[in-house]
Design a protein around this nucleic acid. Structure first.
Lengths: 200, 200
DNA sequence: CCTACCGATCGGTAGG
DNA sequence: CCTACCGATCGGTAGG
């Protein structure tokens, strides 16, 4: 008899294993053992190993989209929006290190149809960042020599977080976002020193 | 009878497959098929599948180390060194996209002993970057609120390159490095606009 | 959720 | 470098 919440527990164990060993190196027996059941019994809860990967990856994508949407839709100044978008992005990663790692590292292991679904959500996310930057450009708050390049640099740097951020380390997510924004902003805002937002 | 250069060809095919499918998803039969021989014959050239991964990864590590060493040992100004280090890093990636991707993405699939060897070389590489940045700080050319953070941000952004750079795209490696340096430098050099190096 | 199992495929080897 | 294999393990299923 399936226990309530068992499926969530399996997803969590799978996330941890996919993160540390990678999807292909993680076996159904690894996951079932970590979940305290036998491998055959796993299929009372899931349909396939790939279903697990897709569900973890898709949830990750939705978390990024949801958190950025609320920032983009706000009426804040572009500089503040950039700061808030960074905080949001970093928070998703730091609050969901396993899922975020799987999202960044293992999504290519999905079969084509589902990989396309994730790819679309990634594109949508990048498009939201592009709009945020171009809005800052239009309002004269950023000077971007190459907006596409700036976006790729920001997201590359932000996505690299999952590889070195340790929750038990010295920096809180907000501190990470602040330092990040300070380096970036004084890089492409007019004012010297980068307009630190003291109001938060 | 082993053909001369066959081993190099196998390494190249393996790099391509590891890059697109990942190490664990690539089978010995994939590699041998791509190399035009049968799976059993592969073992006339290699000892194991993991040997291939290690050799590709280790060569990647050595390329990064070699190219950065020559920059660090030069007598240039720290700002020029930073630019040159970025060019060097990006050149290694763009000139060796397959090996670089495998180096960044698949090194964790190595067994412990060899993973430690690669980890050491990664540490050495990061230490060279740290020295480069602290030298700029000491000479008053950079103002780094958090040097460790700056280093992690730079390397994260630079390492992300392999995920979006296409050799047939618009930007040459030098252009990528320049835009990169411009955003970074005007972020943490005193002078406004970022001291673009016109002498190159 | 367990027992018992299956076909397929894996990395790798022996002998030539 | 081929032929011919092998033991181990994989994801997944049938029946309870």
């Amino acid at each position: 008899m399936p226990k309530v919440g068992r499926r969530e527990q399996i997803l969590e164990k799978a996330s941890q294993l996919f993160r540390t060993k990678g999807y292909h190196a993680t076996t159904i027996r690894d996951i079932s053992e970590a979940s305290g059941i036998l491998s055959g019994s796993l299929y009372a809860h899931i349909k396939s190993k790939e279903d697990l990967l897709f569900e973890i990856t898709d949830r990750g994508a939705e978390m990024f989209l949801r958190s950025l949407r609320s920032v983009v839709m706000s009426e804040e100044d572009p500089v503040t929006k950039l700061r808030n978008a960074l905080v949001a992005h970093i928070r998703v990663i730091t609050d969901n290190l396993e899922a975020a790692t799987v999202f960044f590292h293992e999504w290519k292991a999905l079969t084509e149809e589902r990989r396309r679904i994730i790819q679309q959500k990634r594109d949508e996310y990048e498009a939201m960042w592009a709009r945020l930057l171009s809005e800052g450009e239009e309002k004269g708050r950023f000077r971007l020599v190459d907006p596409k390049f700036a976006r790729l640099l920001i997201l590359s740097a932000a996505n690299g977080l999952y590889q070195w951020y340790h929750p038990e380390g010295e920096l809180s997510p907000e501190e990470v976002a602040d330092r990040f924004a300070d380096i970036l902003l004084s890089g492409f805002t007019e004012s010297e020193g980068g307009e630190k937002d003291e109001s938060r």
